[in-house]
């Protein structure tokens, strides 16, 4: 399972960076979303994997997974929505103001 999660993180990172290297705003935004996923899962994975052991206190349960990375990631997910929304608005603003959605303001 660890390998699968690691591969998923790697793919999300690679896809995110590839899209962020595109020249239009929209793929860059998508790329940033993918990269946020990757970072969130990475932080989550720092708590190690423990399927079936949610951090809900229960005497019947054998153990618990690490709750701290989860708490960090929970707020990070919500904040990344705020960040995405700001960037979307900036991209919209730049497109509507100039009629062009290039990231670097012109052909390279």
């Amino acid at each position: 399972m660890e390998a699968l999660v690691a591969i998923a993180i790697g793919l999300l990172t690679a896809g995110g960076i590839y899209l962020m290297l595109r020249q239009r705003t929209y793929p860059v935004i998508l790329g940033l979303s993918l990269l946020s996923y990757a970072v969130n899962i990475f932080i989550f994975a720092a708590g190690r994997l423990a399927p079936g052991l949610p951090p809900i206190i229960d005497k019947a349960q054998a153990g618990y997974t690490d709750p701290l990375p989860q708490a960090l990631v929970l707020t990070a997910i919500v904040i990344s929505f705020g960040m995405t929304a700001v960037i979307v608005l900036m991209a919209l603003g730049s497109f509507l103001s100039s009629g062009d959605d290039r990231v670097d303001g012109g052909a390279e």
Binding site: E2, V5, G10, T13, G15, I17
Partner: peptide
């Protein structure tokens, strides 16, 4: 992107 992905995946795996 591939190099970065590979690095992050390896790091995550080594951590887990």
């Amino acid at each position: 992107a591939g190099a970065a992905g590979l690095g992050v995946a390896g790091l995550a795996y080594a951590l887990m």
